[in-house]
Design a protein around this nucleic acid. Structure first.
Lengths: 211, 211
DNA sequence: TAGATTGTTAATCGATTAACAATC
DNA sequence: TAGATTGTTAATCGATTAACAATC
């Protein structure tokens, strides 16, 4: 079978999100049009790469002119699924979790932080970033009322796998895992986990510097 | 020209850092040996992928037995360059920056946070994570005395590019950029920048969930 | 030895790039 | 029209995988 029209390569998806970031900035600067070369230069890519990626959106450019910034933004958001709001909860209100509740970037891309959970009784009831910290035990009932799409997992490594089970049982479909351990969904193929490890990013940088 | 023995693909470098994380956990659990299949299962990869990656280390496995955990750890750290300590500074003590000073994972991988800088006079002189916040203006002189290897850039998007110039002038060779904007080193090829964007990670997750 | 697991090959798959016809 | 820039092709490059001989 040949590749369907709207199957988008993972590498392209990542770049589309970076294009979006630049385009939103251009939009704020009131630029109406942009060429593939301008985007490419900002991100250190080839212009042909940018055009190839953008062609996945279902053709929006004008030959001789370029792309409309606002149209591109809408198209990318539609492909990424961020043309609607996503309800997100934070699980684990430690050092990092606390910072994430104040992170502006999530809201700007349509991710609404609507709940915060922890298992430490000393934290429960206190507020963080405008949210009352709730007990992990009430996650399932909360999720069934609130329609939660995603969870940010920011608990210690030792707790990550078992907390993931709780998240899975609450029927949350995606997890962004900041815990420095690989967690695996128990039921095959239900919850999607995306790993983020800040120390690993630093290691990748270190490697680049040494070479 | 054929590929040199110690050129390691970027994709492999990233996975090696993940292997390292698992191996360190196994080491703490006092496991002496490990098979490629065990590592693969934990991370959702193929065993042949793991073996291929590990073969970049210059052969450490024993047929019929597996790999020695401690040997593997040392080899990966050597390749990544984290078999020595790295001096890191934080630039931008906002919400996220503050959390990063308390992030244990950096220290565990050999990254020492040795300085914190901000341009806000109200913050200067105060302490964060055991470090006195210094003025951005004193970054260059601090770096010349302290031998700084890397900088974590956690300033607002609007400031990122100009602060990068300050970092470059201080001869710091690598920057981990958390600012949600692409920054480009001014002098060609000197400072290496690695982008991390937490909102983009959430967008990638959203895409996976929708598909 | 028999059983297990690596190291490596070759095939396949996916991603990047240069080039240029199409066309605004 | 002339100039510019897209959209797309085909070539190249890089990464993944199955399979199995080598060997502990």
């Amino acid at each position: 079978m040949t590749k369907s029209r709207n199957e988008i390569p993972r590498a392209t998806v990542t770049r589309l999100a970076f294009y979006l970031r630049e385009l939103q900035q251009m939009h704020r600067a009131e630029l109406a049009n942009v060429r593939s070369q301008s985007i490419a230069e900002k991100l250190g890519l080839k212009d042909s790469q940018v055009r190839k990626d953008l062609s996945c959106l279902g053709t929006v450019g004008q030959r001789g002119v370029g792309y409309r910034v606002d149209e591109l933004i809408q198209n990318i958001q539609h492909v990424l699924g961020t043309d609607r709001a996503w309800n997100v909860i934070l699980v684990g209100v430690g050092n990092l979790g606390r910072a994430l509740t104040g992170y502006k970037g999530f809201g700007e891309q349509g991710f609404r932080l609507v709940g915060a959970f922890d298992s430490d009784p000393k934290k429960i009831g206190h507020k963080v970033g405008g949210l009352v910290i709730q007990d992990l035990g009430s996650l399932a009932s909360f999720a069934s009322v609130q329609a939660i799409d995603l969870a940010i997992l920011a608990v210690p490594a030792t707790a990550a796998q078992s907390v993931l089970s709780v998240i899975e049982e609450a029927n949350i479909s995606g997890v962004l895992n900041f815990a420095p351990v690989a967690v695996r969904p128990s039921q095959a193929g239900r919850t999607i986990v995306q790993e983020v490890d800040l120390a690993i990013e630093l290691q990748r940088l270190a490697f680049s510097v040494v070479r």
